[in-house]
Structure formats: C-alpha cells, structure tokens
C-alpha cells in the first residue's frame, strides 16, 4: 500500500476534522461515566519480547586482536518495548467511545545494516544501540463496548488507525574508525544517514475499562496491530533499503502485540 508524499498533508486535517466532528456531536442524553463524557488519560502499550525477530545472519561476531572470533549473537536478548501514550477519550454513544491519542517514544534500537562485500555477498552487522528512533504517533480508536456494558466501563473491542512518523538518529561513533573492530571486515560499508520514515498502523484491541473510584478509571487491553509502510523521506538507494527495513521492523516489533495498561480521569 503506497501513499503519495502529499497524502500526509491531507491526513492530518482529516483526522483533526474527524475528532472535531466527534466532539461537537451532541448526544445530550448519553450518560457517559456519571455524566462525564470526556476522559483524559495516560497509557502504556508494552510488551516484553525475546529478541527472536532479529534478522538472521552469520556475522554476529568479530575477530579480536588475537584473531579469535568473538560471538555477538543476541538471540537471547530480552527487550522491554513500550510506547507512552496520552489520550483523550470521548463517550460517543451508550455503547461506544472515540479515542484520540499521541504516542511519543524514542528508544535506542539495534538496526540491521545490510552491506555488501567485494564479492557482492550480502552481510549485516548489529551493534548495540547505535540508532535512536524518535517517534511520534497520532491516531484514533473507535471502541465498541460489549453486551450490557455502558461506555466507558466494561469490556470492549476497539479498532484503530494510527499514523507513525519516525526519525532515526544515527550514532556515528559506532561507525567511526575507532570502533572499527565492531564492524565486520567487509568492504563497501555505508554509514546510514539520519532519515525519516512514516507508517500507518491498523490496530485491534480487546480490553476492559474498569473503575478505581469515582474519579479514576483503569484500562487494560490486549492489542494486535499491523503496520502499513507509507513512505520514507530520502531516496538514495542505500538509505532506502535502510529506512524501509528499519522502519518496518521496528514498527512491527513495537506494535504487533501489546498489552496496554492505562489510567484516565473523567472530566
């Protein structure tokens, strides 16, 4: 699924207009939570993952000064991935709410780098925390509450659409000559440029929103999401590969399966 560059400029206004349309929608008699229909809150979709999704390659190691091979295989690494989220939830009808949210997170991640040696053989190398992923996501969710639940309390199914914009800061030190020993002995290596990429994420969540008193609600959910790559900003061949791969993999890693824990205040 490909979008034109200009589509981004259209999507933001569409989202904004949609949310405004929701907020001015006057279902005056809908109860909300004790008469309050706007909830402001914070939540963290997170997941603990084994590093099983790292790219499989044969170059997880290097030769030290004594020409001994040092294994840097990180398959067993445990990652805790989380995305702090600020949200505004609006009780739309007795059975549904609409949620607008912003996620800001910038973890340091390992990005697979594809290089080619003199024999045109593809190699890759994965040193630690060499790329910082500055990310801002905005999106909307439509929550449908089950059976006899009255929104916003009860079990729900939600369907969301999220726009994700990532800017990668590359730690050039990692690629400096001083750290030569950390990268493979291959040739034609290209240091990745800082770059930006975008994704859409379609998500589904099954969750439960309950009360912790008259002024605090708690939300717990299990979310599945599928990212749809939108576009990268620069178009050099090497960077295209890098951004495409890095953006997709990191978005998948962060959003594919999540457990969400959050709190909201009814206003």
């Amino acid at each position: 699924m490909k979008f034109s560059y200009y589509s981004k400029k259209i999507l933001f206004p569409i989202l904004l207009v949609s949310l405004l349309a929701v907020s001015i929608h006057t279902y005056g008699q809908v109860s909300g939570y004790l008469g309050k229909r706007i909830l402001v809150g914070f939540e963290v979709p997170c997941i603990v993952k084994l590093n099983l999704m790292s790219p499989i390659d044969y170059t997880y190691g290097y030769y030290n000064e004594n020409h001994n091979f040092v294994n840097t295989n990180e398959y067993a690494k445990v990652n805790f991935l989380y995305r702090p989220t600020f949200k505004v939830e609006y009780v739309f009808t007795r059975k549904s709410t609409v949620q607008m949210f912003v996620r800001i997170f910038n973890p340091k991640v390992d990005i697979p780098i594809f290089t080619r040696d003199s024999n045109s053989q593809t190699l890759s190398y994965t040193p630690k925390s060499r790329v910082k992923m500055n990310t801002i996501n905005i999106g909307v969710k439509y929550k449908l509450y089950f059976g006899d639940a009255v929104s916003p309390i009860g079990f729900y199914n939600s369907f969301g659409l999220e726009y994700s914009r990532m800017k990668f800061d590359v730690d050039t030190n990692t690629f400096s000559t001083d750290n030569y020993q950390y990268w493979n002995q291959g040739s034609n290596y290209a240091i990745p440029e800082p770059t930006t990429t975008s994704n859409f994420i379609a998500s589904y969540c099954f969750g439960k929103q309950s009360t912790l008193g008259d002024h605090l609600l708690m939300n717990i959910g299990f979310e599945l999401a599928i990212p749809i790559r939108l576009k990268k900003s620069e178009e050099t061949v090497a960077e295209e590969d890098w951004a495409k791969t890095a953006g997709s993999i990191q978005t998948w890693k962060h959003s594919f399966v999540n457990v969400t824990l959050g709190f909201s205040l009814p206003l």
């Binding site: 939570y33 007795r94 059976g147 639940a149 309390i153 079990f155 309950s210 912790l212």
Partner: peptide
C-alpha cells in the same frame, strides 16, 4: 436485565444506575 462480566465494584454499579 443487564449482565456485565465484571465484579460488582461501586464504580460499575454507579455507572449502570447513572445510565
């Protein structure tokens, strides 16, 4: 005749009766 698959917290009951 409502059946909600949750515990009978004050919050749930208040929410239901408010409705």
């Amino acid at each position: 005749n409502r059946d909600v698959s949750m515990s009978d917290s004050d919050g749930l009951l208040n929410s239901q009766y408010y409705d």
